[in-house]
Write a protein that binds this DNA or RNA. Sequence first.
DNA 1: ATGGTCGGTAACCGA
Length: 255
Amino acid sequence: MRIATWNVNSLRVRLPHVLDWLASEQPDVLALQETKLTDEDFPRAEIEAAGYHAVFVGQKTYNGVATLSRVAGSDATPGIAGFDDPQKRVLAATYDGVRVVNVYVPNGESVGSDKFAYKLDWLERLRAHLRDELRRHPRLVLLGDFNIAPEERDVHDPAAWDGKVLFSGPERQALRHLMDIGLHDTFRLFEQAERQYTWWDYRMNAFRRKLGLRIDHILASDEMRSACRSCRIDLEPRRRERPSDHAPVLAEFAL
DNA sequence: ATGGTCGGTAACCGA
């Protein structure tokens, strides 16, 4: 079972890239973030023509998540239980007994801002929610744009990013705290080359200069960790014309 | 040198 995540930064603009990537990589599940469109504008027909089912929860202009899949998902559940958040950032569904939780974690704007406080609060609510989900679903994958680089090796210049949003102490601690419930970074289960990132600022030729951060993750429960066989970042879509600022991440599970 | 580039939407906000 191949499970992937990709922040597309507007599904309307990136649909050709997504359709090409589905054809070339043929993931069983692809979690998309920042679709930036309402449910009525979701390109369902184009996705289905490519042989994929879709569940989605979106809004105008901002946020929005969608999960595409070869087989239809069941028990699709938007949001975090008990948290009436108008921002559409979470969508869970079950595929062949695997609970897949697709998240677009708040960006946080800058350390100390209101949006930063929202990000930390949001992560704590997600943690409580996932603890319950894990009890019900031992086979669980939590994936998406976390807007947090876990370690120094996930940042092109850790000294410059020290204390900055996406790499600040409170954010990294919140991510560790979330992973403490029993979630494992599939990327780090395997030997990886150095300086591998999933996001590069559009400005200053950051991608060409390899100035990135690894902020998109595929986390696996204990049972799914045991089944995980690989995890890699695909840079090919980021090299194309008019790319998303994020690259897709793909993990393979022996299921 | 505190900028820079995108996307969405219609003067800027969010990332």
